[in-house]
Amino acid sequence: MTGPATELPQMIDWDLAVSLGSRLAGEGPVVTRTEAADAVAELRAGANRSTGLVREFTGLDAPDGTAPILVVDRPGWVQANAEAFALATGPMVEKIVSAKPPSGLGQRFGAKVTGAEVGGLLGFLAGKVLGQFDPFYEPYGRLLLVAPNIVHVERELGVDPHDFRLWVCLHEETHRVQFTAVPWMREHLFSEIRAISETVEPASLLEGGVERISEAIRAGRNGGSIVEMFSTPEQRAVIDRVTGMMSLLEGHADVVMDDVGPTVIPSVGAIRKKFTRRRQGVGGLDRILRRLLGLDAKMAQYRDGAKFVRAVVDRVGMEEFNAVWAGPQNLPSKAELSDPEGWVERVLA
């Protein structure tokens, strides 16, 4: 594959990352060709149906014909996320390379090592993710639904597959609507990523890597993550802003999927109860990896964001809540997620 800055020396072997990640991800549950085709068709139809349901409930109107909807397998998800990761890390790679250009055998060896590390991460996540909105895909992003994972989870939970597929589509389509109905959102996310890159000190990033990872593993027992261990105070300030933004987006999507659900998904209550238990992780290794990769923090985003959205909507109604989409200055801070009244006073007073 090609990254966003092919003129620069390659610090990550993306082809290796995709190849390794795809192998580690596996193929998913055993299905017949007919079952696979039916699942793909139902997910695509469910996402298209969800657009109108999200619009009616939230008041957000996404233009037609913008971000495409793709139903993918695990290798397809790995490929798409490698492309997104390459774009997201492009500014940081450029800064590091400009400070200390890699060359020769060392550069090629380093690219293989980092490619293997990224591939391992993508391979682990590829078996977990049900769907996501990829904002890095030009020009407006794209929605990915991972069919084998959705089928796997609906079987594991023992829920009605038709209800579960539409329920997942409601959540993921809400993200597509958020980014396409709110045109500044995508560029704002990119600007925050650039802000993190601008604070990178190449020397400090490249020094002490093994020791810091070991420290992260030890801290993982108490909720630490590799992301936290490799961030400066300046970067953590940006990460806190992004956390507020992403918690809003995730919580908003959870509220939509659960509140719209009862009108079109008869078994939504049972699905939510079983799925919430599943989000905790199943085994010891799985939980450790979630902590190290910061996935526990993502679970908190769903919970905290949904509480914020519900509290504000209950207080002022959906129309007034939608002031949150007026501009970046109206996004809740990380602190305001647990203080919705503070957000109402700041934004709506």
Rank of each mutant, 00 (worst) to 15 (best):
G220D: 11
G224V: 13
G224D: 10
G224W: 08
I226K: 02
I226L: 14
F230A: 09
F230V: 05
F230R: 12
P233F: 13
P233V: 04
E234A: 15
E234V: 13
E234C: 11
Q235E: 15
Q235W: 04
Q235G: 10
R236M: 12
V238T: 06
I239E: 05
D240H: 14
D240I: 06
R241F: 01
V242S: 03
T243W: 04
G244W: 03
M246F: 06
S247Q: 08
S247E: 03
S247M: 08
L248R: 02
L248K: 08
G251C: 11
H252Q: 02
H252T: 05
H252C: 02
A253G: 00
A253D: 07
A253I: 04
D254S: 08
D254W: 00
V256C: 10
V256N: 04
M257C: 11
G261S: 05
G261N: 04
P262C: 13
P262Q: 08
P262V: 07
T263P: 00
P266G: 10
P266A: 14
P266R: 12
S267V: 07
V268R: 07
V268E: 05
V268H: 07
G269M: 09
I271C: 06
R272Y: 01
K273V: 13
K273D: 10
K273A: 15
F275G: 00
T276R: 08
R277E: 03
R277I: 06
R278D: 03
R279F: 02
R279H: 02
R279E: 01
Q280C: 01
G281C: 12
V282D: 12
G284C: 06
L285Y: 14
L285D: 11
L285W: 12
D286R: 09
D286L: 08
I288G: 02
I288F: 12
R291E: 13
L293C: 09
L293K: 07
G294F: 05
L295I: 14
L295N: 09
D296L: 10
K298R: 13
M299I: 05
A300R: 14
A300W: 00
Q301W: 03
Q301E: 07
Y302D: 04
G305R: 09
A306F: 02
A306Q: 15
F308I: 05
V309G: 06
V309T: 11
R310P: 00
R310Y: 00
R310C: 00
D314A: 12
D314Y: 07
D314N: 15
D314T: 03
D314M: 10
V316T: 01
V316P: 00
M318N: 06
E319G: 06
E320Y: 02
E320L: 12
F321M: 11
N322G: 01
N322D: 11
A323N: 12
A323T: 14
V324E: 06
V324P: 02
W325A: 13
A326M: 13
P328E: 06
Q329I: 00
Q329Y: 06
